[in-house]
Design a protein around this nucleic acid. Structure first.
Lengths: 295, 295
DNA sequence: TTCCTTCATCGAAATTCTCGATGAACATAT
DNA sequence: ATATGTTCATCGAGAATTTCGATGAAGGAA
């Protein structure tokens, strides 16, 4: 490719300097090099660009036409390089994080506060969504890390737990179960059960514990928001199986009663997901560091 | 300069093809070359541009930022080349011609008609002005040829005569000299003499023939237009020394009488001026060809 | 004239570009 | 599990390009 930026820069320098010799000096090259490159450029265009006079140089019509393009191209190239470098830098210094619905509401504010304390110079860009969508985005590289609830796997990802939570049964303070300390898994089938919509990690967990048949029963009410479930339980619509972290404030205030779950594994693990065999950006590494020392 | 158009085109091809191998095929180069050039580009940017996955390629943020610039640069470069070539072509196919005042009026229409017959595909751009200004423009390259009257020289120009004309003395049909065939140069000083303004070739000629002193005399009337001189002579304001070609129509119609000039060199030569040691464009060469075979 | 500036040409050295051969990683088919 | 195919990276060699210093030619200035 004989028509390239290098030559155009030389051409522009000659046009600007009005002299091959001075252009060569400004470009830190030898004068014959400039002569030759201009000549190559003229061959590429197929017409002379500069009229060499003994008194001074003058651009031919072709040269006049080319000069503004040479300037714009050089400028645009500089801009392109700058843009690419900036994008790379921004990516390195921006935490692109996905967070599951529940974690985003009940855990993220605290995590983010501590992240900013620890690494105030990084930017953050946070997206929320259900686990499956977030994991896919991590695999694609759209986000670098995702914080999700436990049943989560993906062939291209490494998933590392960082926190344990428990599922609890919540009832209204005036519920008939309100004075109990625990509820058996099988007892739940006897009460109207509130849970999240299919697709959420909570729904998948409840389904796994109670069986799909139970969730298809008449007593089950599905709501799109965790807050909606809590309010509904508060007013006595039924009971719910929910992450302890999501109700700790209401339990402390006495607006809900939390009963331990008995007869099933009530553990729930939160984990971060990252791509296998990939370096993390400094911004993401800082978050992983924080999560690893959490508690 | 490792950040140049060639590499950017390769990068864009890879991004478009989604594969190093296919991009190499489309670019008619070997695959290792593509790998290497992308690698050089990444070194220049200072960050990876393409994420090589076993499944498929994906652009990094830096790559995403760079890609639109690569496209625009390639497009702009093509446009630049096109513009330069067009400018060169237009220049080659456009006759940039300067013509002196008198020639423009009395000779140019005929020349132009025959030029267009002979070379209809060329464009023409014609400027008029006095000889000195035209010659200067030829030397500068603003126009390629100039058609001027005789006493004309310029250190950087080659001036080639193409036509002979004569100076004649014109008088009104009812003038006391109307029946004469000739007038002596010295007799002119006895009559009111009309001529063109200083700076015109005619003025210079008349001055040369009669002497500057005569032109400073009371009987001389200077007019800016050849037509004005003719009309003034027609109504009997005086006599004038003028190019035969400028009055041939009026003489034929009997509105003016033309007398031969005696006692001085009445020859007047028209010539074209071109730059020394320069090729003429095809358009200009065609005109020179026409003028050379004129008569 | 003689000197000075400017650009072109030439030959040689250094750099860069390109290619074919080969290898490693991974996915898919048997 | 083994074989096969695809894809990209690495290596070494050869080709093309770029660069430079030396030199020459042309023209202007003293």
């Amino acid at each position: 490719m004989s028509f390239d930026l290098h030559r155009l820069r030389i051409f522009a320098a000659v046009a600007r300097a009005g002299s091959f010799t001075r252009a060569a000096e400004q470009l830190h090259m030898a004068q014959p090099t400039v002569s030759q490159q201009i000549s190559v450029l003229e061959d590429a265009v197929g017409a002379p660009l500069i009229e060499r006079g003994p008194r001074r140089l003058r651009l031919t019509p072709a040269g006049e036409a080319l000069l503004p393009y040479a300037g714009r191209l050089a400028l645009l190239a500089d801009e392109a390089l700058e843009a690419a470098r900036t994008a790379a830098g921004v990516a390195a210094h921006t935490l692109r994080l996905g967070v599951g619905q529940t974690l985003a509401t009940y855990l993220l504010p605290d995590i983010l506060r501590r992240y900013r304390e620890r690494a105030p110079h990084y930017h953050t860009r946070i997206v929320t969504g259900n686990s499956a969508a977030l994991l896919e985005q991590v695999a694609e590289g759209t986000i670098e890390l995702a914080l999700v609830g436990s049943p989560a796997t993906h062939p291209e990802l490494v998933i590392t737990p960082f926190m344990q939570d428990r599922l609890v049964v919540i009832v209204a303070p005036d519920d008939i179960w309100a004075s109990r300390n625990a509820a058996d898994i099988d007892e739940l089938r006897e009460r109207p059960l509130l849970t999240r919509e299919p697709g959420s990690a909570l729904h998948a967990t409840v389904e796994r514990l109670l069986g799909a048949a139970t969730l298809a029963g008449d007593h089950v009410i599905m709501l799109g928001e965790t807050e909606a479930i809590k309010r509904s339980v508060e007013v006595g619509l039924g009971v719910a199986l929910i992450q302890a972290i999501a109700v700790q404030r209401e339990v402390a205030l006495g607006r809900l009663r939390a009963l331990a779950l008995r007869g099933a594994d009530d553990r729930r693990t939160y984990a971060w997901a990252q791509r296998a065999r990939r370096w993390l950006s400094p911004a993401a590494a800082a978050l992983v560091e924080l999560l690893s020392t959490h508690r």
